[in-house]
């Protein structure tokens, strides 16, 4: 499967999952579908036949509300059957709304409460350094999540300890749960903040698969510095009426909305 095809499948799976489960956050997943596809198809050293492989790269979705995207990509990569995806958020399902590691092969860490996982990924990077391991620690965060002070604690820490095996990716779609980021709590100048904290920053188009591949492939950009990739993205990317809207953070795609969205995604 090409990375482009994988991204398309993540989007379609997610639309179906959030529709079937009457659940939220479809816009949040559409925003990261291309990033997830590039990571899993081209970058991460992981093994679907051996999810616990000790030398694997670690990937944590800190914006746990977009769990449907991780479940989709893991299923498409063969960590578990794609048939399970339709059980998402339903009674008795292993696929809970916010991503959970329990019983789901390939999920590195349970998330949902924001601001936890840059610290966790930093701990993983630290452990790798202590043991002279070559694997890398990736964490994908939302933009709204940078309101959380705990992330900034980890930013200080990772730079202090020169954790160049740590890669934070920010889904900068500029819309958080109920409003634009710049109106909720402005993050700008965003990249400059990381530079001043001693991180290496790359800004990319989060929907350009070639550009994403190039940037991820050039890791580590610089020795002795943690990396942050600020991915400029569009919330709801791929469905015209969902793009750049606050509404589709929470709204579940039903009825005509679902049909019209599916037509657009299957094009």
């Amino acid at each position: 499967m090409t990375t482009f095809e994988l991204a398309k499948k993540i989007r379609i799976n997610t639309l179906k999952m959030t529709s079937l489960g009457n659940s939220s956050h479809v816009g949040s997943v559409l925003s990261i579908a291309d990033i997830l596809a590039v990571l899993y198809n081209d970058i991460l050293k992981v093994n679907p036949q051996n999810p616990e492989w000790a030398e694997r790269d670690r990937f944590i979705l800190s914006k746990g509300h977009a769990g449907a995207g991780v479940y989709s990509v893991l299923a498409e990569m063969g960590f578990f059957s794609t048939e399970i995806l339709s059980s998402h958020v339903q009674n008795g399902s292993l696929l809970s709304g916010h991503v959970s590691h329990k019983g789901v092969p390939g999920v590195e860490f349970s998330t949902g409460s924001l601001g936890h996982d840059l610290p966790v990924a930093t701990g993983i990077a630290m452990a790798a350094k202590m043991d002279n391991k070559k694997f890398r620690s990736f964490v994908l965060l939302s933009d709204g999540e940078w309101d959380e002070g705990s992330n900034w604690e980890a930013v200080l820490f990772a730079a202090h300890h020169k954790l160049d095996n740590l890669v934070a990716i920010i889904d900068y779609n500029k819309i958080q749960s109920i409003g634009p980021v710049k109106e909720t709590l402005n993050l700008e100048p965003f990249a400059e903040k990381f530079i001043s904290f001693g991180w290496k920053v790359q800004t990319v188009n989060g929907h350009d698969i070639t550009e994403l591949k190039n940037v991820f492939s050039s890791i580590p950009f610089q020795m002795d510095k943690p990396k942050v990739i600020i991915a400029n993205t569009i919330k709801g990317k791929g469905v015209s009426f969902m793009e750049n809207t606050v509404l589709w953070h929470y709204k579940s795609p039903q009825g005509e909305d679902f049909k019209n969205a599916l037509i657009e995604l299957e094009k």
Partner: peptide, 10 residues
Amino acid sequence: ANMMGIAAGL
């Protein structure tokens, strides 16, 4: 908060 996350990751 960071310390607890680091500990979990470690």
